[in-house]
Design a protein around this nucleic acid. Structure first.
Length: 423
RNA sequence: GGAGAGGUGCUCGAGUGGUUGAAGAGGCACGCCUGGAAAGUGUGUAUAUGUCAAAAGCGUAUCGAGGGUUCGAAUCCCUCUCUCUCCGCCA
């Protein structure tokens, strides 16, 4: 969430930024400023009442000590009055604060200046393409047929046990999953990321801290009995490690990585986009999360983007990098690169990673701060990215590498799978 | 799930109604001392918010969270929450 002080001081920039993000309800900005004025008024009143009250309390105490009971009791009349006034003011402070928060939650992060204008995925800017488009044999088939042919991922069995979107990985399919997870984690650790194993369920505060709540509540599975949410990404627990934390500027960049299974309800998505591995309710992902100083966060974003690309290169997957346009970016992001691999049999690009700089938008909610050289506490910048999400990587590995000898495993992965072909 | 104990600052740890934002110790930072270091010694060491151009200063809030009693609460009462111990259950 944006800081009110920033909105107040940079109103014009905020408005033009929101326009770029196709945010329609621009009147909310003035509403925020009004609500903040109102809140301040009440806060000031409350503080004054309390100040007077505190002063009187001390005086009364003193008078009692000196035995001047009558005088003391006289002053009590005013404190009773003040109590009533401050109770009222306090209610108003709470109400106005809540009102202000509701308004602030509506406002998305502002886009970085390099973000292209645009409304949809078509307006995203392709900043890079890498690799050769695979030449597939005439009888090439999409991955959902290959998984069945080699009996490595069983969607029907998942349906039976759980439901759609919960596939069962078997034999070489299961080993391929394990190989990818280990490969990604080893790469991240070699890159200086600290490996974490987070909880797969989080509480409400955490969901709120990273912005899944209150808006995207319906996207997460919820365990009513214990009021816990299944994580949609390891970003949630990992970033929340730093909720209410003041870090040391010397420790920047703070780099963490985690493998986790991710759970997403994906309510309302159906059709060919969700066929096979394209969209699942439960999937595996290795996530990288970085906390960085505002000065270096964009440099860090490029580093992270290159790192993610290096993974795709090692897996020999043709990919492209998109700079998302204002209309296609997430609510919380200031700049996002999407990495898409080409899935040859489906003949389409599949998003396998999304690397974003949130600047201080998340940090403001999290209250994640650092002390700068002057000893002043400031909001840190947070960034994260998938490195990588497995299902679509598997989909394109299967499709792109299908041969008459079976499915070829990229060289870098063979030490992890222990086999060169899925047969 | 049953019974009990407890949550105080970066950490440990005092504190059962009144100048306690909080003793003391440790840690950390800076200074002195030293050839350098250790030891010693001195000073400092929360966050948020308001006022302010800004800083200083000052006001307000914060001793798990929320509410209550009281002129006044870290201290008393209620609710919630978390942790620990014992029993039960269990990978």
């Amino acid at each position: 969430m944006l800081q009110v002080s920033y909105i107040r001081q940079n109103k014009e920039q905020v408005i033009s930024g929101l326009q770029k993000k196709n945010f329609k309800d621009l009147t909310v900005i003035d509403q925020i400023i009004e609500a903040d004025d109102l809140r301040k008024d009440w806060q000031r009143k409350l503080d004054d009442y309390l100040a007077e009250s505190n002063k009187l309390a001390k005086e009364i105490g003193q008078l009692f000590k000196e035995g001047k009971t009558q005088e003391a009791n006289d002053k009590k009349a005013r404190t009773a009055e003040l109590k009533e006034l401050s109770r009222e003011a306090n209610d108003q402070v709470n109400a106005t604060q809540e009102q202000l928060n509701l308004l602030l939650f509506k406002v998305p992060n502002l886009p970085h200046s390099s973000v292209p204008t645009g409304h949809s995925a078509e307006d995203n800017e392709v900043v890079k393409e890498w690799g050769q488009m695979p030449q597939l044999p005439a009888d090439a088939v999409p991955h959902w047929e290959l998984t069945e042919k080699y009996d490595i991922i069983d969607f029907k069995l998942g349906n039976k046990i759980t439901g759609a979107g919960f596939p069962v990985y078997k034999g070489q399919g299961a080993r391929l999953q394990r190989a990818l997870i280990n490969f990604f984690l080893d790469q991240a650790v070699a890159q200086g990321f600290n490996e974490i194993q987070p909880p797969l369920m989080v509480n409400e505060d955490s969901g709120f801290g990273t912005g899944q709540l209150p808006d995207k509540e319906g996207q997460m599975y919820y365990v009513n009995e214990d009021k816990l949410y299944l994580i949609p990404t390891a970003e949630v627990p990992i970033t929340n490690i730093f909720r209410d934390v003041i870090v040391n500027a010397k420790d920047f960049p703070i780099k963490n990585t985690a493998y986790s299974q991710c759970f997403r309800r994906e309510a309302g998505s159906y059709g060919k986009d969700v066929r096979g591995l394209n969209r699942l309710h439960q999937f595996d992902k290795v996530e990288i999360v970085v906390i960085e100083s505002p000065e270096k966060s964009y440099e860090q974003l490029e580093t992270m983007s290159l790192y993610v690309q290096s993974l795709l290169q090692k897996l020999e997957l043709p990919y492209r990098v998109l700079r998302l346009c204002g209309g296609d970016m997430s609510f919380t992001s200031a700049l996002t690169y999407d990495m898409e691999v080409y899935s040859a049999a489906q003949q389409r690009w599949l998003e396998v990673s999304s690397v974003s700089n949130f600047e201080s938008f998340q940090a403001n909610r999290l209250k994640l701060r650092y002390k700068d050289e002057n000893g002043k506490t400031q909001l840190a910048h947070t960034l994260n990215g998938s490195a990588l999400a497995l299902p679509r990587i598997v989909a394109s590995l299967l499709e792109n590498n299908q041969t008459d000898k079976g499915i070829r495993i990229p060289k870098a992965l063979v030490p992890y799978t222990g086999f060169e072909y899925i047969q």
